[in-house]
Amino acid sequence: MKKKFQVKIEKNKCKGCGLCIAYCPVKHLVFPKDLNKKGRKYAQVNKENKCIGCGACFLICPDAAVKIYEEK
């Protein structure tokens, strides 16, 4: 069975640097139109879950806002 993954981004820790979006190989991450509590752009996952669990977003995130889970 193909493994499924979930990226969770802490909305209010994110500063909207966009590095996770730039380095996501499957274009799973996007900027929604609204802003977070701090008035910044923030990264979130796309509706359709294409995550392959590569960890690129986790590694590059300068704000420790990303965690990745494996679905069972």
Partner: peptide, 16 residues
């Protein structure tokens, strides 16, 4: 769900 990329315990959970 199992966490596969987790933040280290030695890092505080506060925004920088």
């Amino acid at each position: 769900m199992k966490i596969i990329y987790d933040l280290p315990k030695s890092l505080k959970k506060v925004p920088a």
